[in-house]
Design a protein around this nucleic acid. Structure first.
Lengths: 223, 223
DNA sequence: ACAATTAAGATAGTATTACTATTATTTTAA
DNA sequence: TTAAAATAATAGTAATACTATCTTAATTGT
């Protein structure tokens, strides 16, 4: 079986669909690689254009600016995560097991689908951890939100919230808990790596720490 | 009684102590105002210099770049919060009440101390919500961390973690819970304002929503 | 009171960023 | 095979993020 997984992203995010051409795909692929390695602040379209040997103007024909490219990448990530959530969920027995599958997904690493992914899963996950909040912590968030730019994120949280509601229909904060789980998975992973005093991590325990914290949290919130 | 509250901030953050001169204080005061109104990305030292009618070079004599100024402002906020935590805590009876006081502090608005604050408390709180993660979600976080630039944040989380440990000495993740409470208070407040589908908020319920969510969370985690 | 620091102003300049515009050439699709 | 679309090549602009230098004004130590 040979297939390529791809997701629709709101067409307000790009000027020209990067999935529609080789150069477009290279922009996203190398964009992921360079945002990962340089960090979003130091990443520029000029550097990207040099790397993939096209002109800067060509890159600008696909994305208005680097923030839109980041948004595109994160939408891809969120859509992929939601796909994996759905995939794991229908294979699991009860709601509690499903929620645990989700915690495993959120605390990474991202599973790779056989059949060949377009993008580097590890880079994508690291970008989600370090850069994802920068997609919405901006002055014009409301304007961008109008164009459905955060729909995949909202859909992901909604899917998780539905499973939370399956576990405990009386819990009042399913959506807030869902977004908190996603954000906390990223934040605690980042803290464990860079600011460990903000966690309770011990030497040699990094592996699985965030998952253990979130499992404990969920088991107590949804008893 | 006439007093001025002030906090020491790691002297690696600034080039010249802004608390040591009138211009320095104006840089921070108007920096807060302008980061609040323009957002961090659109805020520049040139605009700040024009606003307070000094030359751009003068601003650069106090802070290397705008990120350092943001760090300074957030350190001030974190120190202030920790001061308020300590203040509230010693006035409260049992550990559980103390933790509830903390949740009230985290979900704002920031209380103003009589005697005159240097800075606008509301702007400071809004900056904490929208911009605080940008202080550490950067490529050179480890380098900056070496200079104690995040000490006030760590101290705040540590103080909260101690109170969590008072409530339940057997809870294994006091520090992670502390940082999660701080980050979640900000994130959920932001979502309620801009991306409400990531919360369970209803019309006319915004007031106190985040506090209710966190109270429920804490009461179940530390029974 | 005077010299010595130090701070700030005034001015200039550089490299990089974040774009936009134009025209020529190549690729692709009908 | 021709028209349309995409890209290259090139140029240019305004803003950003600084750095440098020189002069003047204010402060401080003795």
């Amino acid at each position: 079986m040979d297939f390529q997984l791809s997701f629709k992203v709101s067409d307000k995010i790009y000027l020209k669909d990067p999935a529609s051409s080789t150069i477009g795909k290279k922009i996203v692929e190398h964009g992921i690689k360079m945002i990962y390695s340089l960090g979003f602040e130091s990443f520029t379209f000029k550097k990207l254009a040099q790397e993939i040997e096209v002109t800067e103007a060509t890159v600008y024909r696909y994305f208005e600016n680097k923030h839109r490219l980041l948004l595109y990448i994160l939408n891809w990530y969120w859509s992929y995560l939601e796909f994996m959530v759905m995939f794991k969920v229908q294979a699991s027995g009860n709601a509690r097991e499903r929620l645990d599958q989700i915690l495993q997904l959120l605390t990474g690493p991202l599973p790779t689908l056989s059949g060949g992914m377009e993008f580097n899963q590890n880079f994508l996950y690291e970008i989600a951890i370090s850069e994802s909040t920068k997609t919405f912590l901006i002055k014009d968030v409301n304007e961008i939100n109008k164009h459905n730019a955060f729909k995949p994120y909202k859909d992901l949280c909604n899917s998780i919230a539905n499973i939370i509601a399956d576990v405990d229909p009386h819990y009042l904060y399913a959506h807030s808990l869902a977004s908190t789980l996603v954000e906390t998975a990223h934040a605690q992973h980042y803290f464990a790596d860079h600011l460990p005093r903000l966690t309770d991590i011990q030497k040699n325990q990094k592996q699985g720490y965030t998952l253990a914290f979130l499992r404990d949290l969920v088991s107590k919130l949804l008893p």
